[in-house]
Structures are given as C-alpha cells and as structure tokens.
Simulated scan of single mutants.
Amino acid sequence: MSSAYADEIPQACVGCTMENARETSNMMLLKDIPISVWTDKKTYEHSDMIMVEGQVANVASGYPVTITVVNPLNSIVTVDQITVADDGSFETTLNTAGAMWKYDGTYTIKANYGSADKKNSVKVELTGGVAYSPGYQTPTSSKQCGASEISADGHCIPFSISGAVVTGATLNTDDNSIVININARESDGILTVTPSKTVQDGIFMILVDGQEWDDVEIVGNKVTVMFPAGTEQIEIIGTFVIPEFGTIAAMILAVAIISIIAVSARSRLSIMPRY
C-alpha cells in the first residue's frame, strides 16, 4: 500500500504502515521525529475516506494529537483531536464528502502534539470535483474561519467536538436551523456549538439524524449535544437564522417594486383632470 508522507519523514519509510513499521528498523527512523503522520494513499476522489495514521515519539499522558486539514483555498476544512495510544500511535478517518472538500487540488493534513515544535504534515490530492485556480475566492465569503470555527455559508461558528469529525455545515433558512454534518467513529461523542445571535437565535430544538434529541444542554446560544456512534447529521433549530444574501436581495427588490408601484399610482392620480 502506498503511503504519503511529510517531507521531513525519512524516505526509507515511504510505503510502510504501522504494522510492518513495528517489524522493521523504520520504526527507529520515526522515533527521530517528535511526531509523524501519513495517509493510506496520495490521491483520492471526492467522497473517498482518507485513512490517517501517525506516531508520536514521546507520549505525554493526557495530550491528544490535533489534526487540522487545509484545502487549496487555504481555508480550514476540519479540526479534530485524536487520542494517542500507549505505544505512541494514533489514527483517524477523514470523509471528503463535505462541501469544504469539493475543490480539486492539494489538501494539507497537519498534526500537532502539545507544542508548536511538535508538528508534521502530509499532502494529498483530490480529483474529480470542482476545478480550483489560484486567487479564486468562494462566492459566499472571503472570510477565513479559525481552527475552532465551523464555516456555514460564509459565517464562522465557534465549536468543539470529540468522538467525530465535522465534514461541513450549512444554514437552513426554511427551518431557521444550522445543519452540521459529522463523521462519527465507533464511540459516542460530544458537540458544542455557540453561534452568535446575529447568525442564530432562540435555539429550542436539536435533531440528530432527523430525530428530535433530548440528550442536549441549551444555555442561551450555547448548545451541547451528546451523540451516539454512527451519527451523520446534527441540526440546531431556533426562531431565527440569518438569511442568505439572495433572500435579503429578494426582500429589498420586493420592497422597491412596491414603492415604485405606489409612487406611480400616486403620480397618475395627481395628473388626472378634475371636474
């Protein structure tokens, strides 16, 4: 199986996996690097699953590995924290089906362990999607969200998650909701979302995979959802969600048309002869 490695990883280890690395001297090469990360392939199509594995040289109890994925637009696709095993190994799965994964090109998967100097990265190529050209900006917004924010239709929403990876998010103006797609692993997890009141307000209901969910905590605009393994979608419903630009434009246009009709009618009345 071909593996894609960061440039810093010795070339003698290219092509190895965690299983055969333990059986060869390649493991000694990995030990010379504070943290290493690799994938099962170098090239993927959209909707593929990316298997990410890695190794930490010196395990620090209680510290997870933070995985950050950046797309060709230099926007953060997803962030997740991975538990490190006693032997220093870690692994996770990334689903490329989300909206932030739609562009063809180079995606950088970064791994960080505790401090700024304990980091590594690997690059993979995605094909068969939307062609990307340098300098292109998404039509919804050029704003880049931070590592602890979800991008939903151009709006950045603070979040944290354990036991799953966020693959994308959208705003549903019909239901006044935020729809968050996740890829949950084999264990249960927790998602915390804190949208600003300019994005969503009056949160009163949570749906997990389309079913009303009770295992939640809502405090103002902070929502904490305890979800089971295998969950794919969480929807946060409120009394308000910010409309997309197109909706606002339509409302403005409607008001303008009504105003024009009113002014025109008044003008016709003013020029009609009176007897």
Rank of each mutant, 00 (worst) to 15 (best):
G146W: 04
T78H: 05
Y63W: 03
S259G: 14
A97G: 09
D80M: 14
S270N: 15
E19A: 15
R266C: 02
A254I: 05
T192N: 09
E149C: 07
V70Q: 06
Y113W: 04
S160R: 11
H155Q: 13
S151L: 11
D86M: 07
G246A: 04
S151E: 15
G98W: 00
I258F: 09
G54M: 02
F240W: 04
E217A: 10
G98R: 01
M18C: 13
D80E: 13
V225I: 14
M100C: 03
L94I: 15
S61T: 12
L29E: 12
K119P: 00
V52R: 03
V56D: 03
Y103K: 02
M272F: 08
S177C: 07
M272H: 07
T231R: 01
V165E: 10
S47C: 07
C16Q: 11
S267M: 06
A265V: 08
P34L: 05
E125A: 11
E186F: 10
E125F: 03
P10T: 06
T106R: 12
T39I: 06
T167S: 11
T39S: 12
I236F: 00
T106V: 12
Q11S: 15
D201E: 10
S270T: 12
G54Y: 04
I190C: 01
P273W: 03
M100L: 14
A99L: 09
V59K: 13
R268G: 01
D174F: 07
E232Q: 09
S151C: 13
S270H: 11
M100E: 12
A99R: 13
D80W: 00
G246N: 06
M49Q: 12
V193K: 03
E232G: 02
T93M: 08
P243R: 08
T39A: 06
N221C: 01
